[in-house]
């Protein structure tokens, strides 16, 4: 009896936010006479958003949960996709190769970012700002400022499809769960999260673990860059912290994921957070919502959710009378 009650609580906790969001978004679209998932393009846009946001949320949370605020993930996404697309365009490589090169270059640039943090020993927020400018400047320099355009390359722009995005979602989730829940690296990561000094005293080496976290985050952002580049067939340049905006797309799903993570694996929570965000994004697109209204709405949802989290105990008391 107790077990089934616990199961119901779990299911309720896991499903409430995404299901409620889905119902609300469908209702909003229906009220305007719009079918939310009308065409294949709508499904592709939804799955693309889930994939990008999920990977960005993983990348952001890996370091943020350890107290390392990393502004450079957007610039790693940009520089990785530039390196990969330039190699593939010049060598005539196919889309899977571009994905692989994006992943590897993301790992490289992430590792470099982690090594700089370790060597310089400045606060991570400062280091990541410097690294962001460095990568943005580097990307600008290697493309002469023009970015990369391959809109006419039908091979490299053929990637967007529900199936391809689904594969990345499943593979990404599996790799992250494996890395952080079933490896020594993951155990050390969790131990360092719960108490760095004690963990170090027990023999855990925090430096390789931190560099590993940056490498994993870099790899994830390399894939995000690949998804973004193959969607439009071009990579726009960003200077003066113009790439930082990418990380802010991950805050709402990260908080939602954190909440859902109480009832299941936290990574699955992040996926459901990404699904929730993608549903909202698709509603914005289907109803052609003005960007200023989008920003206000998203900010209100985020603030409202944080207010709820901070006052959850009081609310429960209030409800129980």
């Amino acid at each position: 009896m107790k077990s089934s009650k616990g199961m119901i609580t779990k299911i309720f906790g896991i499903g409430t936010i995404p299901v409620a969001t889905l119902v609300i978004m469908l209702a909003l679209c229906a009220s305007k006479g719009v079918v939310m998932f009308e065409t294949q393009g709508n499904w592709i846009a939804f799955f693309r958003a889930v994939t990008s946001v999920m990977l960005t949320t993983f990348a952001l949370s890996i370091n943020l949960n350890s107290g390392r605020f990393d502004f450079s993930i957007g610039s790693i996404s940009m520089i990785s996709s530039i390196v990969a697309s330039q190699i593939c365009i010049s060598m005539g490589f196919t889309t899977p190769v571009m994905l692989l090169i994006s992943l590897v270059s993301g790992i490289f640039f992430g590792t470099l970012s982690g090594l700089i943090y370790i060597i310089v020993k400045l606060p991570p927020i400062i280091v990541s700002l410097g690294v962001t400018l460095f990568y943005e400047g580097f990307a600008f320099a290697i493309t002469d400022g023009y970015g990369v355009s391959f809109v006419a390359n039908t091979e490299l722009t053929s990637f967007p499809s529900v199936l391809n995005y689904s594969i990345i979602i499943l593979a990404g989730l599996a790799v992250i769960i494996f890395l952080f829940d079933y490896t020594k690296f993951g155990y050390n990561y969790k131990a360092l999260l719960s108490g760095q000094k004690v963990s170090v005293n027990t023999g855990i080496k925090e430096v390789p673990n931190a560099v590993g976290c940056y490498a994993v985050a870099g790899g994830l952002m390399g894939v995000v860059g690949f998804i973004s580049a193959t969607n439009t067939g071009n990579i726009q340049m960003a200077l003066n912290f113009g790439s930082i905006g990418v990380m802010f797309t991950a805050f709402l799903p990260m908080f939602i994921g954190g909440f859902i993570g109480r009832f299941c694996n936290e990574r699955i929570g992040y996926v459901l957070g990404a699904v929730t965000t993608a549903l909202i994004s698709l509603m914005y697109a289907r109803l052609n919502v003005d960007s200023s209204i989008q920003q206000i709405t998203t900010a209100l949802i985020l603030v409202g959710f944080l207010i709820y989290l901070n006052n959850e105990g009081k609310l429960k008391k209030l409800i129980k009378g």
């Binding site: 065409t39 393009g41 709508n42 592709i44 846009a45 693309r48 958003a49 990008s52 946001v53 969607n231 439009t232 726009q236 905006g245 797309t249 993608a278 994004s281 698709l282 914005y284 697109a285 289907r286 052609n288 919502v289 960007s291 989008q294």
Partner: peptide, 19 residues
């Protein structure tokens, strides 16, 4: 479609308009 939001919603808007 207007603006240069470059976020998921904006790219979805661009895609659905072109199709």
């Amino acid at each position: 479609v207007g603006g240069y939001d470059m976020d998921e919603a904006w790219f979805a808007k661009c895609g659905q308009m072109a199709q």
